[in-house]
Amino acid sequence: MSATTPKTRDDLFAFLDELGIAVTTRYHPPVYTVEESKALRDEIPGGHTKNLFLRDKKGRHFLLTVEEDAVVDLKTIHTVIGASGRVSFGKPERLMEYLGVIPGAVTAFGVINDTGNAVTLIFDEALMRHEVINAHPLTNDATTSIATEDMKRFVEATGHALHILKLASEGAT
């Protein structure tokens, strides 16, 4: 919740480099939806992410990072993530304020901008079974591939707790 300028993709890469985390980034035209990004699947192996930026009735924010085809039941997910009452999508202004990204570029890497720890990041356990996770590097015109173990190290290095829960419904397609 700082008034500072959000970190850029280059800032993110520098932070990962400082941690000794190697990533691979593929640049592409901007994509705003999972459907648009599926055209890149053959070129980029690993688990591909979908991110839900949510807010509960007490104003707490959650970022759920799941596999791109995962189905998350928004009517019941609050019971899984410990939210107060049902959740709704967070507003774009709050997305920029807390994670430094715009809609369409939401990513687990956004926690690098959440210096006040206002957002609870939760990964779906099915996504974390992949050896590699693919996510936007704070912009939606690139996809960064990071080893799952390194993603865990990144999250902890930002001061966020690592939460891994079963977020997606069975039989998600």
Rank of each mutant, 00 (worst) to 15 (best):
R9Q: 15
V101N: 04
D69N: 15
E97R: 07
L74H: 06
V66M: 09
L138C: 09
G59R: 00
K57R: 13
E156Q: 11
K58A: 15
G159F: 07
T139S: 07
T8S: 15
F154K: 00
R94Y: 05
G85H: 06
M151T: 09
K152V: 13
T4G: 01
P29T: 11
T158E: 04
A108C: 13
V106D: 06
F154G: 02
G116Y: 01
F53T: 05
L121C: 04
E18N: 10
L52G: 04
T107V: 05
L54R: 00
K91V: 10
D141I: 08
F89I: 12
H163S: 03
R153C: 03
D11C: 08
R41P: 00
I133M: 08
H61D: 01
T5M: 09
R94L: 13
S2G: 05
I102Q: 11
H78V: 11
T107S: 12
T5P: 00
N134H: 13
D10M: 11
K58I: 01
G46V: 08
H136I: 14
I44H: 05
I122N: 03
F53V: 08
I81H: 07
N117M: 03
F15L: 09
H130T: 12
P29G: 05
Y32G: 11
L99Q: 05
D17V: 04
G85V: 11
G171R: 04
H163M: 04
H48T: 08
G104L: 09
V132T: 15
A22H: 05
N140E: 10
A161I: 07
I133N: 03
A3D: 11
M151W: 06
N140L: 14
G85M: 07
G100K: 02
S169Y: 03
S84L: 01
A172S: 15
D56N: 06
I21H: 02
A22K: 13
G47D: 09
F109H: 00
E35I: 13
G110S: 02
R9D: 12
T115H: 00
K57V: 11
F62I: 07
T76P: 00
T143S: 14
H48C: 10
A126R: 14
I133V: 15
T79F: 05
V71A: 14
I77Q: 05
E68W: 12
V101P: 01
D42H: 13
F15I: 02
L165C: 01
T76A: 13
A147Y: 05
V72Q: 12
A142H: 05
N140M: 12
I133A: 06
P29Q: 12
F62M: 07
P45I: 12
A70Y: 10
I77A: 12
L99G: 04
D141A: 10
V101W: 04
T25L: 13
T33D: 11
P137S: 07
I133T: 08
L19I: 03
H163N: 15
T49L: 03
M1A: 10
L167Q: 09
V106K: 01
T24Y: 07
V31M: 10
